[in-house]
Amino acid sequence: MTSASNTQNGYRAYLVGFALAVVLTAIPFGLVFAKALPFGMLFPLIVVLAVVQMLVHLRYFLHLGLRSSPWEVRLSGGLAAIMILIMALGTLWVMTDLDIRMMTMGM
């Protein structure tokens, strides 16, 4: 009985996650196809929708939760997030800065 209702909940969770993912994919593709917004507004919106969809996948497909996951999983996830922030954002920061300096020197 309990196991049957657990699987029922399991199917529901995947279907809810799938429906959310479809909506969160259709909106950015639709907006780009329709060319509805200028780049300056559209790009930040796409970034926000991507982050939300990543969280939806983590929650509904990988079954991760801020409280329900073991602390080791949360720790290594947090560590990876910090490393990504430092290295990826650091790369962008340094390279854009370098770009701007090279341009002014060229002119």
């Binding site: 593709f29 929708l49 991507a50």
Partner: peptide
């Protein structure tokens, strides 16, 4: 999840 990043 990585693919979400790629298309976005």
């Amino acid at each position: 999840i990585i693919w979400i990043g790629i298309f976005s």
